[in-house]
């Protein structure tokens, strides 16, 4: 079976700075991949290219067998297949949790109001927030907001969900509830690409670890193997530091 996401030799520069220098990433259906790496190594940039928030300068990208060009129409089709959750939850502040989830299915997929409403109810229940349907974002905790953002992305029934450091903006005591939702998604067979600093979580939940370094994938493989036998000094150093950094969790 061809990979669900096939990104090959992706290049991206900002101004004169080359952030991605031929990055290659393949993600299979049902796989959970964690992307790790130092700050500035291009993790977010890679994710944003995967759902068309940035276009790449060179390289090949296909999702679900469809080649993606830079055309706006193509990008919207791409985004139907690739959902994304951000570090800052980015909920629409003027809409309730339920309306946040309903908006895109209504506007993009033309669902009727009752259809969208029952879909939103189902999605919110999936992240444990069935009872907060009518709450506005600023009445929710950060963890709850992030779970609504996950429900909102899932309501579009994407083939893959990209998560860019979705627990980094949360107070430590709220991280667990969001990771729990991700864990459930992984167990249900959802294809996931997670940029994360939660090394223990990555180790437990992910099928594959992708270590980005200097704009390319420096090393990748099964988490257990990478953690116990890093092949490059960069990864060894990174694991050492990250291990200390999240020792408390």
């Amino acid at each position: 079976m061809p990979p669900l996401i096939n990104a090959d030799g992706i290049h991206k520069s900002f101004g004169g700075m080359e952030v991605l220098r031929g990055t290659t990433l393949r993600v299979d259906e049902g796989e959970v991949a964690a992307v790790i790496g130092r700050s500035g190594s291009g993790k977010s940039t890679l994710l944003r290219i995967l759902n068309g928030l940035e276009t790449c300068d060179a390289g090949f990208l296909s999702v679900d067998g469809e080649r993606i060009s830079g055309l706006e129409r193509d990008l919207r089709r791409l985004r139907l297949k690739v959902g994304m959750v951000f570090q800052q939850f980015n909920l629409f502040p003027h809409l309730t949790a339920g309306e946040n989830v309903m908006l895109a299915p209504r506007a993009v997929k033309r669902l009727s109001r009752p259809e969208a409403k029952s879909l939103a109810g189902e999605m919110l229940a999936g992240v444990g927030l069935a009872d907060r349907f009518d709450a506005f974002p600023d009445q929710l905790s950060g963890g709850q907001q992030q779970r609504v953002a996950i429900a909102r992305a899932l309501a579009m029934r994407p083939r893959v969900l990209l998560c860019d450091e979705i627990t980094s903006a949360l107070d430590p005591e709220l991280v667990g509830e969001v990771l729990e939702v991700v864990r459930k998604l992984a167990a249900a067979g959802m294809t996931l690409v997670l940029v994360t600093h939660e090394m223990r979580f990555a180790r437990e939940v992910c099928d594959r670890l992708v270590f980005m370094h200097n704009g390319v994938v420096g090393e990748e493989g099964k988490p257990a193997e990478l953690f116990s036998r890093p092949q490059t000094p960069e990864l060894a150093a990174f694991i050492g530091q990250a291990g200390q950094g999240s020792a408390g969790r």
Binding site: L80, G83, M84, F86, N90, F92, V108, R152, M156
Partner: peptide, 15 residues
């Protein structure tokens, strides 16, 4: 408005 709002909307395939 924060950039994140545009990006969240774009990520949901809104025009």
């Amino acid at each position: 408005l924060p950039r994140g709002l545009f990006e969240a909307a774009a990520a949901l395939s809104l025009t």
